[in-house]
Computed example of a mutant assay.
Amino acid sequence: MKPVDTYFLNQTEPYQSIMLYVRSVILNTLPEVEEKYSYRIPFYNISKKTMIYLNILKGKDYVDVAFVQGILLEKQFPMLKNDNNRKQVRSIRLKTLEDLDHENFVALLHEASNILCKSKKAWFI
């Protein structure tokens, strides 16, 4: 079993279900995405550049679906929030599966992928 699979299976509910669903949407929407396990969390890369990572922040009660270039997407997708005053990363906070608007999330994934493909690197700030 891959480390990323072990990570998901070791999560408690509702986090496990949320993360597995988000993972399936990402992998089905962007077949070119590469799933990696780094810094003890799952990352999703395109062309070796990080696009998204999933995390459960200490002391928080939600799954943090973090978009590395989220600052470039937050006007078009107001569901992205700036958690912990991050310079570039913006994220969606999911406490339940129902918190995820599937259609908007798929559109966000496509736009994030397009922007990342045009960028020289994922981290620019």
Rank of each mutant, 00 (worst) to 15 (best):
P42F: 02
E32H: 06
F67Q: 05
G59R: 02
I46T: 10
S119N: 15
L57P: 08
K121D: 06
P14W: 09
K49F: 05
F67A: 12
S113W: 08
Y15I: 09
A122E: 10
L9N: 15
V25W: 02
Q69W: 02
V33W: 04
C117W: 00
I56G: 01
A122W: 07
D64W: 07
K2F: 06
L80G: 08
K87Y: 03
Q11P: 07
K75A: 08
K58R: 13
Q76A: 13
P3G: 04
N114I: 08
F77A: 11
N45F: 09
S119L: 15
E32V: 12
Q88F: 01
V65Y: 02
L73E: 09
K81I: 12
L108P: 10
S119K: 14
R23P: 05
E103C: 02
Q69P: 04
V4Y: 04
R90D: 09
N85E: 13
S17W: 00
V33D: 04
K58L: 11
R93I: 09
V65E: 02
L94T: 07
V25H: 02
V68D: 03
R86G: 06
L94H: 04
W123F: 12
H102R: 12
R90Y: 08
V106R: 01
V106C: 04
K75R: 07
Y44H: 06
L72M: 06
K120I: 14
D5T: 12
K120G: 14
I41H: 05
L9S: 12
E35L: 08
I56Y: 00
G59C: 08
Y7C: 08
M19E: 15
A107T: 06
A107M: 13
F124C: 02
S119R: 15
M51L: 14
T12H: 09
P42E: 09
S47L: 10
K121P: 02
W123M: 11
L57K: 10
K75V: 06
E98W: 00
R40N: 15
A66K: 05
E34C: 06
F67W: 05
D64L: 06
A122F: 03
N45W: 03
L80I: 07
S17F: 02
F124I: 11
Y15E: 11
D5G: 01
Y39D: 08
E74I: 08
M19S: 14
R93H: 14
I52T: 01
K120S: 11
D5R: 00
L108M: 14
K118P: 02
P14H: 09
K87V: 13
I125S: 10
S113E: 14
D99W: 10
I26F: 03
V33I: 15
M1W: 04
L20F: 02
